[in-house]
Amino acid sequence: MSAKKEKHIPLSRNEILWIALFYFVFAFLYHITIKFNGYGRDVSLFDHLLNPVNFVRTSGLHYFLFFLASIPIWYLVFVKLRTWSMRNRILMTLGCLPVFVLSTQQVYYVITEYLEWGHLGGTGQVWDIYIPALFYLIQFGILYAYEHYKENQRKLIIEGELRQAALQSELAAIKAQLNPHFLYNVFNTINASVPAENEQTRAMIAQLSDLFRYQLQASQTDLVPLRDELEFVRKYLDLEKARFEDRLKINIEVAESLMDEQVPPMLLQPLVENSVKHGLSSLIEGGSIHIYIFKEEGKLRFEISDTGIGISDKAAAFDKGIGLKNTRIRLAKRYQSTLELLDNSPRGLTIRFAL
């Protein structure tokens, strides 16, 4: 869930109309009930039902007070306390019931006495407690049921979107496997067509083909031996050396005992590529890349250092390209590890992390 506070969605026009209809229906039914219980015996049923003054006197005012008293309670339990558990919100709603009943009853009595409309008296006043309480429970019961319905609809929409996203991810993964496989075969075809005397070109095409083959294999597994990952990085750097020639120096320092350690595939190459592309490529004299992997306190630790131009704004570096950003996300999600960017001495950048 987002760290931002969830905003309440305002009521739609249709929801407001349904609320108005709900109150009108209940008020009108109460209006009919009052007539059949002897109110206005001297007035015919037809005239009684269609007389707006009678409607306001018998039920309209009372239900309008219900509406006004319901607004702050609705706002409290459905907006302000929305993050509370359903149990606690229902308890709060029940706790507001006496306030709702007594406040609407007393205000109704004051207004009707002032207007000399009259109201129930004696033991009959119990109906001005029972009916508001019953209406209150029905009203908020419907509101909670409607909220539950909307929440289920929202979940169904989210589940549909997640299924669609999963399908798209699955298709993207299939394409990610097909593309390297296709290119791998194409490189082999090109390599076979290159004349034997162009041995260096044939070797570079073969290395590039191996890179795509490793990428294809990496897309089908979660972990690979460190030996395979380093071999992939070496072939990538060999191709870069063909461009940089003597301007690029490479040093890989890893104990033989660590070569069978399991690591995520395609973990080091984006970091090494970052050093070449952003650290060394702009330097006429070139530079060096040093990869140091060792084990300490039960963790496999990595340091990739270069003698390039370095990075002044290290926080912003994760927003400039996908290599550092994606590697940081992979490490955080799988190992709860942090990707550190440090200044190298005397110049350049050092990247550190641990598995």
Rank of each mutant, 00 (worst) to 15 (best):
Y23I: 00
Y75T: 14
R13G: 12
L68I: 13
E116Q: 14
H48L: 11
S44Y: 07
Y39P: 01
A27R: 04
H48T: 07
V79S: 00
L17A: 09
Y114T: 02
L45P: 00
T83R: 00
V101L: 06
Y114K: 03
L65G: 07
G118N: 06
K80W: 00
R87G: 07
L61K: 10
N14W: 04
Y39R: 12
V99L: 14
A20F: 11
L76H: 01
S85Q: 11
L81E: 13
H31S: 14
I73H: 06
W84E: 15
L68V: 12
F55I: 04
F67C: 05
K80Q: 03
V53C: 09
V99Q: 05
Y114V: 02
M86Y: 11
F66E: 03
F28Q: 05
C96F: 07
Y108I: 11
N88V: 04
V101Y: 04
V77P: 02
P98G: 08
E116C: 02
V43G: 01
K35V: 01
P98Y: 14
H48W: 15
D47M: 02
L81Q: 08
L21C: 12
G40S: 10
P52A: 12
Y30D: 12
R13T: 14
S44V: 07
Y109I: 15
K35H: 11
F46Q: 07
I32Q: 14
R57K: 10
P10A: 12
L68S: 05
F26M: 08
W18E: 13
F78Q: 00
S85Y: 09
F64M: 11
P10G: 11
F24R: 01
S59M: 10
L50R: 08
W117F: 13
V110M: 14
V101K: 01
L81P: 00
F66Y: 14
G118V: 04
L45Y: 07
G118T: 05
Y23G: 00
F100C: 06
I32D: 08
W84Q: 12
L76F: 02
S103D: 05
S103R: 07
L115D: 05
F22H: 09
Y108Q: 13
F78Y: 00
S12C: 02
M86F: 13
G38S: 05
L21D: 09
Y63A: 06
F64T: 09
H48Y: 15
R82D: 15
R82A: 15
T104L: 08
P72M: 07
S70M: 08
T33Q: 11
N54G: 05
L68D: 10
Y75F: 06
W74L: 03
F22D: 04
F24N: 03
G38V: 03
N51Y: 04
I16Y: 10
N51M: 07
L65N: 06
Y23M: 04
F67P: 03
I111T: 10
